[in-house]
Design a protein around this nucleic acid. Structure first.
Lengths: 153, 153
DNA sequence: AGTGAAAGGTATTGGGG
DNA sequence: CCCCAATACCTTTCACT
């Protein structure tokens, strides 16, 4: 499947607002609603659209603090790394996990209610893990931009 | 406005999948569809729901590389910082911008097609800015988890 | 592949408790 | 603030170009 300019325009609009009706979408891309409907179905079937979500205000939901954690690992063999990944994946406070090259191995972005929640989490996830060589935590003062928008040409 | 357990359950479900119908939502929280409808409208009006978006596959859209950039700023006065923020905000390749405490000032997460795109961007955004003291770039090997899910108790 | 119309399903609104 | 019912709107399908 290769995307034409209609598909790209549709994706561009949906990644900004997926509540837009197919009828309005059709107007904006100059197609009929049924054509838009079929294209969206195809884009979802082929995995171009990975999910449809509501973005919730973390401050209003009692999780005002965003933390960035750089984690260094001792033994980087596959089994060990998979172990760390699955723990990070299953921890609800952790929103994002990146495996990176450079001075550290994992970058975590997490959201907590207060620093005591973070202390408990870091104790359980980081201090008490033999294979974690060290970690550095930074508190964010401001979440200036938070999106997964892709620049679709 | 204070959230009760119905609102929290609704938000919890919508942040996982906002395409779920209000009818199904109503079943899962044990309310009528109209009650769910009114609650969602109120949650949006009060800013608990900040947006509704489709998540697009960055690899399939020709942006397979995610980069993490730590930026250090020389002069951190308000005017200068606002300048940096607005530039980062208006750069489509930059998905996320955090203002942080610690060894550096901004953390950027960006998505590009290839390293030459990054070189062009870093030249324009980082090298050619007198007020940027330095920056460190890390390439992600794997985006293990990417969400904005909040742990709603 | 696209269109347009028909059918089916959801969202939304208003009356009543 | 809830439910139920009616209406309006949207999505989805189908026949045809």
């Amino acid at each position: 499947m290769v995307l034409d300019s209609f598909d790209k325009k549709i994706l561009q609009l949906l990644q900004r607002d997926n509540k837009i009706s197919q009828r309005e979408l059709a107007e904006q891309v100059n197609l009929s609603p049924s054509a838009v409907n079929r294209r969206i179905a195809a884009l979802e079937a082929d995995g171009y659209i990975k999910g449809n979500i509501a973005i919730i205000d973390n401050k209003k939901l009692g999780k005002p603090i965003t933390l960035i954690v750089e984690v260094r690992i001792k033994n980087k063999h596959t089994v060990a790394m998979d172990h760390h990944k699955s723990i990070f994946l299953s921890t609800p406070a952790i929103q994002q996990v990146y495996l990176v090259t450079g001075d550290f191995d994992f970058l975590l972005i997490m959201t907590v209610a207060d620093m005591s929640e973070y202390e408990q989490l870091s104790e359980r996830l980081l201090f008490n893990d033999e294979n974690i060589h060290g970690f550095k935590t930074m508190v964010t003062l401001q979440n200036i931009k938070q999106s997964f928008d892709i620049n679709i040409e």
